[in-house]
Amino acid sequence: MTRPATHDVLVRRADDRLHTQIDWLDSRHSFSFGAHYDPDDTHFGLLLVSNDDRVTAGSGFETHPHRDTEIVTWVLEGSLVHQDSTGHTGVIHPGLAQRMSAGSGILHSEKNDAFRTDPHTPATDVHFVQMWVVPDAAGITPGYEQLDIGPELDAGGLVVVASGMPRHAGDRAISIAQRDAALHAARLHPHGVTQLPVAPYVHLFVARGDAELEGAGRIAEGDAARITASEGRRITAGAEGAEVLVWEMHSALG
């Protein structure tokens, strides 16, 4: 287990993220990604990628390969169609936990579902956050898993979305092949309060709304906090509530 030596909170503001914008995609990256590379900002803990994506109706990511990554996708608005080379298909919507294990190699596509379901509905973007963590081992069998956890989220507290940690075996929605990491999500009610996990590395992303992070101040929509030697700081949602994604990590890449 890797433990950081000192307590620290680094808040990265939404406008400071790397930005990719093309005709069908608006993507903001929390770490180096694609053509954007900063050798001092490639990951945090075990988290390799946290992309905040908007894809226009009728568009999306064509079939492309992945390998040796655990990929968790969290939809905020709209719906996203997933298809992969192992035969799995699914429509991901808000409240649905979804994980794809790339393992020894997989091909998949992700596209905005706006035109597929009803061609007469208004064209809408799909807004989602995609996160990648490093797996325990290379070359595992590719896999896919999804589960709707909307009712659990409506309660307002932290929900274990995806985890490979043994202590979450009975209460996680979906599994990942990384024993030292877990993703939590919360849809906090206005002024609602929750406590972050105690862990060597915690990554907090405010997907919607705004919140107050104990000891660090206000964090707005699109902001992230990288917390080392976390002792379970409290977060308090603002007047409109907040939706947050929290990675709890007990080791880090070298």
Rank of each mutant, 00 (worst) to 15 (best):
A216R: 07
H93D: 08
G78Q: 06
A102H: 10
D23Y: 01
T117E: 09
H82M: 14
D171Q: 05
I71W: 11
L46V: 14
I235L: 15
D171A: 00
A162S: 09
L25W: 05
A220C: 10
E110M: 11
E243K: 13
A216M: 03
E77M: 09
L183W: 03
T236D: 02
D68W: 10
H120L: 07
G143N: 12
V129D: 01
E231V: 13
D118G: 04
A138Q: 11
G95E: 04
G209V: 03
P65F: 00
R116F: 11
E214C: 05
A239I: 06
V72G: 00
E110T: 13
A114V: 01
A242C: 06
S230R: 06
H66W: 09
A199W: 07
P119N: 11
G164H: 07
S104G: 13
M131W: 05
I227P: 07
T63F: 09
E152I: 04
D41H: 15
D148Q: 09
P200F: 05
A229Y: 08
S109Q: 14
E212W: 02
H250R: 12
T117W: 03
T86Q: 04
T121G: 05
V9K: 03
R28Q: 09
W24D: 02
E70D: 05
L10D: 10
T141H: 13
I149V: 15
A169Q: 15
A5I: 05
S79M: 01
G254H: 11
G241F: 06
R187P: 01
G164L: 11
V75G: 10
L147N: 05
P119A: 14
L245V: 01
G170H: 08
M249A: 15
F44Q: 08
H203Y: 15
G139K: 09
V202L: 06
H191S: 14
S27M: 09
V160I: 11
D15Y: 00
S109A: 15
G139D: 12
Q195H: 13
E214W: 03
G238Y: 00
A216G: 03
V193L: 04
P197M: 02
L96V: 15
T56K: 12
F31Y: 13
L213V: 06
P4V: 02
R208Y: 00
D84E: 09
V75D: 11
E110L: 11
G156E: 06
H82V: 13
V134R: 12
G241M: 03
G34A: 04
S109F: 14
V72N: 01
